[in-house]
Nucleic acid binder design. Structure first.
Lengths: 338, 338
DNA sequence: CTGTTAGCGCCTTCAA
DNA sequence: TTGAAGGCGCTAACAG
């Protein structure tokens, strides 16, 4: 038998109070006399009453929901961040509305309009490919509709209008490159993506800095994120660089692992002949053989922090600090000497 | 300057029609004269008007949103399914409200109440650990509130009240076990999870069937999904099974890969001494060395299909068919002989 | 084909 | 501390 959802009115009737009182016990309990409150809560419990989210949203102009915008759920870093967001959101009883971005700017613009229409209380935006146009659009939305926006693991280094949570990719790139140099490596390659990712550019800058300081020759090699493609690329790379190549910093664990596989199949030894560092500390890193040394990024924590900052901003506590950096660390496993 | 969101009323004024007409051009365009419609649409465009989702939901009692309930975003199968759901949902302009389940039954029950309160038009539920209690609760929600529910990659073999999209895990388990038998393997182990997952039980049944048919001895070995733990387990397993062990069917790619790594470190050759099959065809399978043979599960398609079925049910097209099976396939790579 | 009108369920002043 | 009443922005009959 179809149960009709209890309304605030039913609760009020049964508790013998006005619906205003019911509303108050839910939203401003301190303004209701203790006995009345308890009586009302009891009825709410009995009826399994939950306020209709639409009616509440319409009347209060708050939704207790936030929009989560991500480029691609299948990337494990994104999924883990969303997990962190979900954990934190749960604490505040916030709902998450998920938007998976398409590549087209138009689509994204359309989605943002939807987000505004959905009355989301805030936006968590994560997209490591963010460009000028997207950044400005986000900022416009924020200003036009005064809706808080937090960028999670999404860096746009040329401006700082939007609150950002990330790690220091530049420093991380620098550090691991430096370690390879200290190992005595002379021909260190950076393996990065052909597509333009802001965070990868930063890793690259860090790499270049270290290489430059050591007076070595920089080698940037761009490949695809796709395994079947980059395997072919690595064959070419080997032809070109040959046995001189003795160190690699890859912008993703998966790229590092497929590079290692490619080299081993050519008879090169890791880390005897070549040392390799990856980025992220995904499961790939521990499942690979030899197990991958890499930068560990606290990706879940980034999600948690971003959500908690968003909550603060929604509550009106806007800090002056725009950039929040979480600590990374270097994990030494079996593809480096240390 | 804070733009105040345009309302239907603003649009009506400016287009010099009643608000009912604006509503119609949005929801029943065929009921509006072409010229009027175009005039209205033009104004909508100019004002960047998007109907307030709350008001619309409240008035229409439809939300054009669905609840997506998942156990854990960090599992790549879950993330990929959500991706499929997002792709399909976009076609219908549906929003996704994401709920990450906790282990506690109470929590889940609370979440379902929230889903009902949120007026979601339907529920996509995925949880391969589903138990009796959870299944019955879902069914109760469905009946009490007549809200469509689809189980995606979530099997509860003892009942069939809820529409389900999955693959035939039993058959898949049977097939790969049979292949190992045909290779001449005699001591084939099933590596499964210590925790109870419905789908893993089905894989196990398929394995047992094939083993039984061949008059072989069944060996079920339960381990953790956690890499650091199962490595230790595999050492124990090796002590116990020793060199007789010559075939493995693992319920997850990651388990298969860490098993392989463990055996290789002990000097065993894959697939010369041991053949190994995994399940899922994740990236781990192609990044491992040797590359893992496994069952390919069309996980994105399961998400797509589930969402499309849900949309159908929401639209009132409830088919009698309760169970929808998608085809799986066997991927032969380098850890088996074929 | 278009306009008028009555809610949808809740929050929030304003009075009492 | 409580109740009455208006309205949030939109949809959906019902008239015309």
């Amino acid at each position: 038998m179809a149960k009709t959802k209890a309304t605030i009115y039913n609760v009020a009737m049964r508790a013998d109070v006005s619906l205003a009182t019911v509303s108050r016990t839910l939203n401003n309990p301190e303004k209701v006399k203790k006995e009345t409150r308890e009586k009302v809560l009891k009825v709410i419990e009995e009826l399994g009453y939950k306020p209709n989210a639409f009616a509440r949203g319409l009347a209060s102009r708050r939704s207790t929901s936030v929009a989560v915008m991500v480029p691609d759920m299948t990337r494990s870093s994104i999924a883990e961040m969303v997990n962190g967001i979900a954990i934190e959101a749960r604490k505040y009883n916030y709902s998450l509305i998920l938007y998976v971005l398409k590549d087209e700017y138009e689509e994204e613009s359309e989605m943002l309009k939807e987000v505004v229409a959905s009355q989301a209380d805030g936006i968590l935006y994560m997209n490591d490919e963010i460009n000028e146009q997207q950044y400005q659009m986000l900022n416009k939305i924020k200003e036009d509709y005064t809706i808080p926006i937090i960028l999670a693991n999404t860096l746009y280094p040329y401006e700082n209008k939007l609150t950002t949570v990330s790690i220091d990719y530049y420093k991380a790139g620098y550090e691991i490159t430096k370690e390879l140099i200290e190992e005595g490596r002379k021909n260190i390659y950076m393996l990065t993506t052909a597509r333009k990712y802001m965070v990868n550019d930063l890793k690259e800058s860090g790499y270049l800095k270290a290489i430059d300081e050591a007076n070595l020759e920089p080698h940037i090699y761009r490949t695809s994120g796709d395994i079947s493609i980059n395997t072919v690329h690595f064959d070419e790379l080997y032809l070109e660089a040959g046995k001189k190549l003795d160190g690699v910093v890859a912008v993703r664990d998966s790229i590092a692992v497929s590079f290692i596989n490619s080299m081993i199949s050519k008879g090169r030894k890791v880390p005897k002949d070549i040392s390799v560092f990856g980025f992220q500390n995904t499961k790939y890193a521990s499942l690979s053989r030899p197990r991958l040394s890499c930068i560990d990024i606290p990706i879940t924590d980034i999600g948690v922090k971003a959500m908690s900052l968003l909550k603060q901003e929604i509550d009106g506590n806007i800090s002056k600090q725009k950039y929040f950096e979480l600590p990374h660390s270097i994990i030494h496993r079996d593809t480096t000497k240390k």
